[in-house]
Amino acid sequence: MKKAYYDTFIKYLDQENKDKSVEYVMSLLKSKSITLEECYLNLLSASLSNFVCKEEDEDLCIWKEHTRTSIVRTILEATYPYVIERKNAVSDKKKSVVVVCPSEEYHEIGAIIVSHYFAMNGYESLYIGANTPKNDIVSAVKVIQPDILAISVTNYYNLVVTKKITQEVKQQFPHVKIVVGGLAFHHPDSLSQIVYDKHLTSLDDIAHIEEELQ
């Protein structure tokens, strides 16, 4: 992907220009100048993760960050037709997955991208939301009976409730594979204390996850 695409996108975002930002990314996708993966990782994710607050305008940071998140989110939702396209193109229908953020976890951009990735890889993928209480997650698993439960955690405090969720799901539905990801698992010691089947650091791995979970 050309670096210029990213620079232009950031320029529009810095201006808080929602229309231009959305139009620009959608046109890049339409013209097939970028792949869906490049859109998610190199544009959307990167624009948020690289967001830095300049010391002098700390007061502006909060709302600027919120505005940017909101624009990114709009683009993310708008890409869904391309996701369906990719999903239909996958020949062998794969299994089902539920993507969720635990209670008090409001960082959901990553989770949505993950759910799109699963769909793009032929999964029946359902994102059930940010800040989802433990009991709701358990009942969703009970009703939907997915093959995989994907949990996205950004704030490391939320690992406390995540541990409870994964323990309970594993106990009640041992056949459901649990995949975890997100910033919260950054520290190596954290993972070892939680019940899970797979921790992914790269979204590309979603393509081979089925074999790995066997």
């Binding site: 704030n155 690992l159 406390v160």
Partner: peptide, 25 residues
Amino acid sequence: DRHIAEKADRIIEIKDGKINLDLRQ
């Protein structure tokens, strides 16, 4: 108070007299 705990460098959860979680950022 989760607002205090989540800002700490490390969170230790005690459960029934044992360390249930020992988390670092």
